[in-house]
Amino acid sequence: MRLAGAPLLLLAVASLTFLLMRAAPGGPFDREKQIPEQILRELEKKYKLDGPVHEQMGRYLWDVARGDLRLSTQYRNRTVNELIGQTLPVSMALGATAFAIAIVAGSVLGICAAAAHNRPPDYALMVLALVGVSLPSFILGPLLMLVFSFWLGWFPVGGWGELRQLWLPALALSLPYVAYITRLVRVSMLEVLGEDYVRTARAKGVSEARVLFVHAFRNAALPLVSYSGPLAAFILTGSLVVETIFNIPGMGPFFVNSVLNRDVFLTGGVTLVYSALLIAFNLTVDVAYVWLDRRIRLD
């Protein structure tokens, strides 16, 4: 049922973006200098933007359904498919790294904080986490750059292509969520650690590390799984900014430019890809949740 809804939702997203972009006064061919009427009409024809708006939209949705995201109006003669094909892998690499850092570092720190409950390491981690939660990526990004690239010179300033260039942006993107997940995991670990089966495991002589990381964490991870849906959404939008700061050729800068330049099809295409990623991810999370916790059934 949810699976069947996804393509419909995507079509709705496509029509909404298209209508929004076309509803505003002006169009993608507006320039400082007025373009002659004849040329404008030719351009509109080439980019299939002629005729009444509902017909334009109908044809656009048909193209989208067949997987053709059309030509970009700004980057002449390049298709949106091609532009996304080049930029999506970059964004995905950055996003996936940040996601992995957030989940792994957040879980480990959260488990450590719970293990040291009400002792100095716990307090220190909680203070750090509270600071981290309130530092958004667009503050962290430039700050990390200032400290680690300019003052210490450990990492390159920006750009893309080498592994060394991945770390700072991935950190800027993931640190606020590392902080959030640390708090999340700590709370749910504390809850789980009070349960009988943990006491049983300890009584059996299972090592403390194994109790924490295997027995307890397995159940404490459930809130983390349901948070990973929103987390993916935050990382996705966060990457818009981080890519701009670190000059990374991902989808983000293209998207922002396309909105400013009224590049209808590029905006539509990127919005669609973002939505599709998020919807697919949320579906996966739902499935994973059921698989992890047999007490829940999806209807």
């Binding site: 929004l20 509803a23 959404a233 998207f255 909105v259 400013l260 939505s275 998020l278």
Partner: peptide
Amino acid sequence: DVLYSIPRLVFVIVLISVLDLR
């Protein structure tokens, strides 16, 4: 639920710049 599952900020960016002109 449906609104939750679409990337909100992406739409905010489109909306703000479109409505600005309106």
